Amino acid sequence: MIEGGRLQAEVAHHFNVSQSVISRLRHRYNETGAVAERPRSGRPRSITPAEDRFLTISARREPFSTCRMLWERLINAADINISIETVRRRLGEVHLASRRPLRRVPLTPEHKRQRLQWGTEHVHWQEKWNAVLFSR
């Protein structure tokens, strides 16, 4: 588009990016003849994007699974060697966190109603219950 005579600002508006992005891409194209990203420094990622998606989908399907459970599932499915910390980092990148399973039975609305009724009936037990705090 730029070679066709359009301004950088027009191209940026067309692709909904800032003008500096178009400027950097044009500069890179003039230097290297391509706009593809250059190799980056640092260690390569240990799992592929497909394995990242597998982790994300597994975590969303079973929201109370732990990192260890997700790690074991990924190890069995992909036959790779990664750490549990890698699983935690990958979940953090997509704003997910593993959760611990509940250690108690959740209260139903009926349970809550019965507990509140019992508390309101016994709120005036001054002799035996001085050290107990009742709240709603």
Rank of each mutant, 00 (worst) to 15 (best):
T108P: 02
R99M: 11
T86L: 01
Q117A: 11
L91Q: 02
V105D: 14
G92C: 03
W118K: 13
E72V: 03
P101E: 14
K112H: 10
W118N: 12
R99D: 07
I84F: 02
P106S: 04
T108V: 03
Q117F: 12
L91H: 01
V94W: 04
T108N: 05
E93C: 06
V87Y: 00
R115H: 15
R113V: 12
P101A: 15
T86S: 01
R100C: 12
R73C: 04
R89P: 00
I75Q: 08
A77P: 04
E110W: 05
H111Y: 13
A77S: 11
W71C: 01
I82C: 03
R89C: 00
G92A: 05
V94R: 07
I80A: 03
G92M: 02
I84S: 01
R104F: 15
R113N: 11
R100V: 15
H111D: 11
D79H: 13
W118D: 12
R88I: 00
N76F: 09
T108A: 06
Q117I: 14
P109L: 05
R113G: 11
L74D: 01
I75T: 09
R89H: 04
R100K: 13
H111T: 07
A97W: 08
R99V: 06
E72Y: 06
I80H: 09
P109Q: 05
V105Y: 12
I84C: 00
I80M: 07
P109M: 08
L74T: 00
L102R: 15
Q114S: 14
A78F: 09
P106K: 03
S98A: 13
I80P: 04
L107V: 08
V105A: 11
W118Y: 14
L116A: 12
W71R: 05
L102N: 12
H95G: 02
I75S: 02
N76Q: 11
V87I: 04
L96H: 00
A78T: 08
R88W: 02
R89A: 00
R88P: 03
L107M: 09
Q114E: 14
R99K: 11
E110G: 05
P101F: 14
W71E: 00
R113P: 08
E93M: 06
E93H: 07
Q114C: 14
P106V: 07
G92Q: 04
P106I: 06
L96A: 04
H95T: 08
A78M: 13
Q114W: 13
I82L: 02
